[in-house]
Amino acid sequence: MNAPQDQFREYLRRHRDKIVHNWLDAAMASYPEDTVSFLKRQKDRFANPVGATLSRELDNIFEELLSESSTQQLPQSVDAVVRVRAVQDFSPSQALQVFTVLKDVLRRQLDRPVRENGWQAQYREFEDKVDQLCMLAFDIYVKCKEQLWELKARQAQDRVSYLLRKYVGTDGSNNPAGSGSGAGGDISGE
């Protein structure tokens, strides 16, 4: 371990709470103003799953970024955040901004100390980690969306799964929607 590396980490650790706090603020700014106060104030995680997930998981993620070796925790935490964003009213880029804003937060916090202490290399290295985080988030986002499409696609069959099994002899997973009409009726609502 070289000394600047340790110092840089030490600095991040010392300012950890502030950075995570600012990150959370920046992340929540993507919600309507009227909602942000609810997301922040309601501390009960059952009454406020979105706010609770964000504050818990952003904290976890930052901890993971600080640690030397990566664990299973990182993808899990990213998944928890992305899973929520993927079903809310966001475009894909907006949904993932929750991670890209971290770079902005870091830049504001670190601009001076980096220049004063000559931590440019360490800073770039850490930014690379954030980039990787964004990539990971992108993978997970696509996975969530795929899952949603699959759920959508499967539902038509799942709704009449019993009929399909009995009449078509399959659970419908390989059949296009609507094959249940063999039941003699019109599958309503589809």
Partner: peptide, 14 residues
């Protein structure tokens, strides 16, 4: 009632 609706909680749409 504001924060009692599951759709508000889940969507954040005022």
């Amino acid at each position: 009632c504001a924060d009692k609706c599951h759709y508000f909680i889940g969507s954040g749409d005022p």
